[in-house]
């Protein structure tokens, strides 16, 4: 049983419509102090709308919201001093330098000059942006913009941080750095509300995850509890020279204990509750003129849970999101 004082976010019956579209439909959940709470779902599921309503950028049609124990339902301003927001787009001021942007964001939260300048320097150091501190934000690379946007969300030491797609558009090294930072913030006691298209990121960082589909929370559990039922399952990824149409069905017919399906270009995914014997599979494929390039066993992950719940392939969703990020970076 969680003590009410330990709940940083309490949402009940939250609904939001845009015209005929029900963006968020009777959503309810709680976020505990100090946890990383993942909010996952396909594009357009209602993740950003939920964040907007919780942070005060949108008005709820129904439901109640408490942030840090404060009832913010009718007046989101009451809870805004407790939250930091990193939006899914880099929205700092292109005319200002990195340092000036951070100082300005600090001033918006009432921080005095010496305090906000010291904090800005500290964040620039943390994010490796010291050398770019005096350069205009408009001239930053996409990765640098993202890092500074995350830093801006942290300027006033918020106990609750909303991270909307924090690593989208970052290169591998920067994304790893950002994840490390999220883990560090978590260790330092910051409560984090995270949305991401990188399921492995959510699996690694989150304590609990809520899945939202078509505006409704369809599942909310601890990550370990979500993944555990899938752990007993064996999954084999077979890379082949020519994944002909219907090959998956042929395999499933020949090996009734297995379920085989295409898993991307030149790949077949074979699943079973029993151990998978690779030899007969490879022979079967080679007899049909299909060369097997690689066969490797993979650990079932949160991605499997996501696909099972939403029925949506993550790759397609992620690519669409990355395209959007790239367009923004170019613009």
């Amino acid at each position: 049983m969680t003590d009410e004082a330990d709940l940083v976010i309490q949402v009940e019956g939250l609904s939001k419509r845009y015209g005929d579209v029900r963006a968020v439909d009777n959503v309810g959940f709680t976020v505990r102090r100090g946890e990383v709470f993942g909010f996952l779902g396909p594009n357009g599921a209602g993740k950003t709308t939920t964040i907007n309503v919780l942070t005060g950028l949108a008005r709820a049609d129904a439901g109640t919201i408490r942030i840090g124990g404060v009832d913010c339902t009718g007046n989101p301003k009451k809870g805004q001093h407790l939250i930091g927001v990193v939006p899914d787009e880099n929205n700092l001021y292109p005319e200002l330098t990195g340092f000036e942007n951070l100082c300005f964001c600090g001033a918006l939260y009432g921080m005095r000059r010496p305090e906000r300048e010291a904090r800005a320097r500290e964040l620039l150091m943390t994010f490796g942006l010291v050398e770019a501190a005096r350069r205009r934000f408009g001239g930053y690379s996409t990765g640098m913009k993202r890092k500074l946007t995350i830093a801006a969300g942290l300027i006033h030491h918020p106990p609750l941080l909303f991270l909307d797609e924090p690593t989208t558009g970052l290169d591998v090294a920067s994304a790893r750095q950002a994840r490390q930072l999220i883990a560090d913030l978590h260790r330092a006691g910051t409560t984090i509300f995270l949305t991401t298209h990188y399921i492995e990121e959510a699996e690694r960082l989150c304590d609990r995850i809520a899945f939202i589909v078509s505006g409704r929370v369809v599942r909310l559990e601890r990550v370990t509890d979500l993944v555990q039922p899938h752990q007993a399952r064996r999954v084999l990824l077979v890379s082949v020279s020519d994944a002909k149409a219907g090959l998956g069905e042929e395999l499933t017919l020949a090996f009734p204990a297995y379920r085989a399906a295409p898993a991307g270009p030149g790949q077949i995914r074979v699943e079973s509750e029993e151990p998978i014997c690779i030899g007969p599979l490879v022979r079967f494929l080679e007899e049909r003129g299909v060369e097997v390039l690689e066969a490797r066993q993979v650990r079932p992950s949160l991605e499997d849970v996501f696909v099972e719940i939403t029925g949506i392939a993550i790759d397609a969703m992620r690519k669409e999101k990355e395209k959007r990020g790239a367009r923004e970076g170019a613009g």
Binding site: T55, G56, L57, K77, Q80, H81, I83, V85, P87, N91, L92, Y93, C105, L108, Y109, G110, A152
Partner: peptide, 9 residues
């Protein structure tokens, strides 16, 4: 960037 202002307390 106007959202930054709307998010300020």
């Amino acid at each position: 960037s106007f959202e930054r202002l709307l998010l300020a307390p």
